[in-house]
C-alpha cells in the first residue's frame, strides 16, 4: 500500500519574543486509505503539524511528502491532492453555499458545467441542498462544518486534513459529522484528523498518535494503545484530601497495575475487577472516601497514564 502522508523529523519553531517549539521531531507515516488521528491537548502541536502538511506553515526542519510531493518545494502540486477543513470558518462570506463549492472547483481547474454538477451533487450528499442559496452567515455551526467538508472534498483530493473538525459543535452535529467522516472509508480517501476529544479519535480512527508538547508519545490502533496500559479497569477515587499513603497501600492489592495521585484523589489501573472494589473501598475507608467511579480504559486514560495530565486540562 502506498504512503499518503510521510512526515520525517518535522520541527517547527515559532520565533518572536518567546521562542515556541510547536513541533519537536515528529515522524509519521500514514498509508493510503487510513483514517489517522492526532490526539492531544490544545497547544500540543497538532494544528501546526497539519499546517505544514497543508502548505500553510513552513517547517523549521524536516520534510513532509504528500503522495510523494514535497509540500515545501512544490506547494501548488501538493495542494492539488489535499483537502482541508480547519477549525475556523473559512467559507467565502461573499458567496452562497453553492458558490463556495462551485468556485472551489473552478480554482482546481474544473470547467463551468463540471463544477456546477459537482456543487449540486455535494450539496445534496451533505444534506445542504435546501441551503444552496444561503450565505455562510446564515448557516448553523453544524451546516458550516458540513459545507466546509463538502468543499474540501470537491476537487476529489486523495488526502483530507481535518483540524479539530467538531470543535464547538453540538453533540448532534458532531455525530452527523462523524458519520460523514466514517463514510469516507469506502471512498479510499486518506484522512488525517486532529482532535482533543478522545471519543472522536477512538470511534473514527484506524490508528491514533498521542501528541504532547510537539512530540508523539505513542502511536497505534486505539484498541492496542488501551491494551498497552495492561489495565482493564480504571477506578477514580475521590478523596479528601488525596493521600500518598493510601496509594502505596493500594499498589499492594492483587490485580492493581498502577496508582496515581490526582488533584481530587487517586486514579487506579487494574488488570482485573474480581473482588477489587470491596478491597479498595475497605482500604480507603479511613481516608475520607467520597466517591468511586469505574471506567473502561479510554484513550484519555492512555493519555493520562503517559503524561499524568488530563486531555482537557
Amino acid at each position: 500500500m502506498s504512503v499518503a502522508i510521510h512526515i520525517e523529523r518535522l520541527v517547527k519553531v515559532f520565533g518572536g519574543t518567546h521562542e515556541v517549539r510547536a513541533v519537536d521531531h515528529i515522524d509519521l507515516q500514514v498509508p493510503q486509505g487510513e483514517i489517522f488521528g492526532l490526539l492531544g491537548p490544545n497547544g500540543a502541536g497538532k494544528t501546526t503539524t497539519v499546517g505544514v502538511c497543508t502548505t500553510r506553515v513552513l517547517p523549521t526542519d524536516g520534510r513532509v511528502l504528500v503522495h510523494g510531493v514535497d509540500v515545501v518545494s512544490d506547494p501548488p502540486r501538493a495542494r492539488k491532492s489535499i483537502g482541508v477543513v480547519t477549525q475556523h470558518n473559512t467559507l467565502d462570506r461573499a458567496c452562497t453555499a453553492w458558490d463556495n463549492i462551485y468556485f472551489h472547483c473552478r480554482y482546481f481547474g474544473m470547467p463551468h458545467t463540471v463544477a456546477r454538477a459537482r456543487a449540486d451533487e455535494l450539496l445534496t450528499q451533505f444534506r445542504l441542498g435546501e441551503r444552496a442559496r444561503s450565505l455562510p452567515g446564515q448557516l448553523s455551526g453544524g451546516m458550516v462544518q458540513r459545507l466546509q467538508l463538502a468543499r474540501a472534498l470537491a476537487h476529489r483530493p486523495r488526502v483530507l486534513f481535518l483540524d479539530e473538525p467538531t470543535a464547538g459543535l453540538d453533540p448532534q452535529s458532531r455525530l452527523a459529522l462523524w458519520e460523514l467522516v466514517a463514510g469516507m472509508r469506502q471512498s479510499g480517501v486518506t484522512v488525517l484528523l486532529t482532535t482533543h476529544y478522545m471519543e472522536e479519535a477512538d470511534r473514527l480512527c484506524d490508528r491514533v498518535a498521542i501528541i504532547d508538547h510537539g512530540k508523539i508519545l505513542v502511536c497505534g490502533p486505539p484498541a492496542e494503545l488501551k491494551r498497552g496500559l495492561g489495565a482493564q479497569t480504571v477506578l477514580a477515587l475521590q478523596l479528601d484530601p488525596p493521600s500518598q499513603e493510601l496509594a502505596t497501600t493500594l499498589r499492594q492489592l492483587p490485580g492493581v497495575t498502577q496508582v496515581e495521585v490526582t488533584a481530587t484523589g487517586l486514579r487506579l489501573f487494574a488488570s482485573s475487577r474480581d473482588g477489587l472494589i470491596p478491597r479498595v473501598a475497605e482500604a480507603a475507608q479511613s481516608y475520607n472516601l467520597r466517591d468511586i467511579a469505574i471506567t473502561e480504559p479510554t484513550l484519555e486514560t492512555v493519555f493520562i497514564s503517559l503524561t499524568g495530565r488530563e486531555l482537557r486540562e
Binding site: 502548505t55 502540486r77 480547519t86 475556523h88 473559512t90 467565502d92 480554482y107 482546481f108
Partner: peptide
C-alpha cells in the same frame, strides 16, 4: 478576522 482568504490560498497555484 474571517480568514476566508484561506480557501483561495489553498488553490493550486503559487500564493
Amino acid at each position: 478576522g474571517t480568514r476566508e482568504i484561506e480557501d483561495r490560498v489553498m488553490a493550486p497555484l503559487p500564493v
